[in-house]
Design a protein around this nucleic acid. Structure first.
Lengths: 333, 333
DNA sequence: TTGAAAGCGGTACCAA
DNA sequence: TTGGTACCGCTTTCAA
């Protein structure tokens, strides 16, 4: 089903048919209707490759997942994708997802996308402080948006949760409850979000004139479990632990159980992300949530605008993080 | 950076350059090397749209996620993707992921892919008994593979876990431990996996001459939570509950807690999937696992073969499911 | 208001 | 072993 056969069956030129379908003004209304009806009836669908070649555009937006063999919080990205997908689709873009493990090979994936003109724009997720992907994309000039900030200089669109404020506020709440020994199981500092969250925690502790205790661990259950085991084994153990993510919080909960500690009676635990399992943890996990639907909508809007040629100035947003109170926090013993 | 400029800079024709890069035999070895070196140096990358248009192939394989806004238990699919991605990439295919919420619009997404020739092949996941997607793809003739079986007649490649054997075996194990009142919180029967798992449970119960008790619930924590609340509130409550998935098992664990029941002392609970959180549930969840890396590898191989023109006969595999013993199962009280 | 024709950047046939 | 060239299907000038 090509434009040609469609045109022939209508006794028109492909030019006219093409214009009628694209809604150009210089086509007789009657002709346009006739063409549209026929296209519909015959199930005509423009060949994507041909249109892309001709227009020099791909109608594809890619989100490259930095998948590690040991998985991380990918469900969050899937949710983000769900939020963005509809918006892109409405503008005729396919949102496609590619997997590229971090490492030296990672940039090759981006080169292939850029140099092979495989996408009109990119979504970068799980940003790192010194992010080679952002460096490269900035220099390559391909429109992109980032979910999360980074330390890379330059103006580019991003949306991020205000992790600093969130962790500062939750630390203050714990302090107000009477906690004094509050520890933080941080994610690796190479990740931007990890440093923002940690900074919020440290700020609140400093404010209260209390020492901060941070342990850095791989951003998963296992890493946090080991880190928490360490913290809880110390002579003066913390009465509250802030985990950088919910998955890390699950590891902390387990460590508490293994130390015979009741949460929240002996130990308060807080996570971040509000993954589905958090509500079903024992006890139900007190956590924080960045509304991904909203973040996705903003990101999609920004990327579409960038692809449309708008400059990135002002396309930076730090969204507030919502506190979710459940049952893993209580006054200190 | 097009073939033309590359050819000009080498003083060769584009024909020769194209053949040299594609590794055809009828190119002088010296020429080939010279071309390759130049292409590398200049960062030449064939324009994807042009090649696709000419070859009539897309070098794209799509996996369409049936995402529902708000619930994504799909880390499993991400893992599957990770397993397949490398294999596809090795053959020059992009594995791209598309989101399409189930419903009347779903098939439109598939039509767009098929009619716009946007992919050479598809991976269908979370199959349903009467699966409109499979119907459509079979009729459209586009190569595809399914993760999971369906009742749609026709020969097409699939890989599935043997849910029937898995649930039969675990039910037998519970029976051997002395359980008599074993219930099953089933996923909606529209999903193929749900009926296979349920069938295994029912077979084992019938074998033992015991009545089966099934409650069907939405395949998430909340649905299973409500279903389990119902089961545990009955006059003679079960001593063991099999949940169709781990996420559902989390809901069951919560219901048990709310009924003041200790798992596994008062109630045994079993899930399926072995999601990361399962090991960190309280108690650590006894569950089952379909090796997704292996399933992904099989699926990728099948799809590549189908795209290469091989017939689908014999491309059906039901893989054994591995039992993961943890701490949510014990003899009945 | 319509149509002819020139590409977009490759691939592959045919000839040299 | 190499080069010329006709497409692939669509968009978009330019003429009619």
């Amino acid at each position: 089903m090509s434009l040609k056969t469609l045109a022939q069956s209508l006794g028109l030129s492909i030019t006219t048919v093409s214009r009628a379908l694209d809604g150009y003004a210089d086509v007789a209304p009657g002709t346009r209707e006739r063409v549209r009806a026929a296209a519909d009836a015959m199930g005509y669908r423009p060949n994507a490759a041909a249109r892309r070649l001709r227009r020099g555009t791909t109608e594809v937006v890619m989100l490259v997942l930095p998948t590690l063999p040991g998985r991380f919080d990918e469900p969050l990205y899937i949710e983000l994708m769900g939020a963005m997908g509809g918006l892109f689709a409405a503008e005729g873009f396919d949102l496609t997802l590619l997997a590229a493990p971090p490492g030296v090979e990672e940039i090759k994936t981006y080169r292939r996308i850029v140099e092979g003109r495989r996408a009109d724009g990119l979504v970068v997720v799980r940003t790192r402080r010194d992010d080679a992907r952002i460096h490269y994309l900035l220099q390559a000039g391909l429109p992109f948006v980032a979910m999360g900030r980074s330390d890379v200089p330059g103006i580019y669109p991003f949306v991020d949760g205000d992790g600093t404020a969130a962790f500062r506020d939750v630390t203050r709440r714990l302090l107000a409850l009477g906690h004094r020994r509050i520890a933080h199981v941080a994610a690796p500092s190479a990740f931007a979000f990890a440093t923002y969250r940690r900074a919020g925690y440290e700020a609140a502790m400093a404010e209260a004139g209390l020492p901060a205790t941070c342990v850095e661990a791989p951003a998963d259950e296992v890493g946090a479990h080991l880190a928490a085991l360490d913290l809880l084994g110390r002579p003066t153990r913390p009465t509250a632990i802030l985990a950088a993510t919910d998955r890390m919080a699950f590891g902390v909960l387990r460590a508490a159980r293994e130390h015979g500690l009741d949460v929240p009676r002996h130990l308060s635990v807080v996570g971040h992300d509000n993954v589905p399992a958090a509500a079903f943890a024992d006890p139900a996990l007190t956590t924080m949530e960045l509304p991904l639907a909203e973040a996705g909508a903003r990101l999609a809007g920004m990327l579409l605008a960038r692809i449309g040629g708008e400059p990135p100035d002002g396309m930076q947003e730090v969204l507030p993080v919502r506190a979710i109170e459940r049952h893993s926090v209580a006054p200190p013993p």
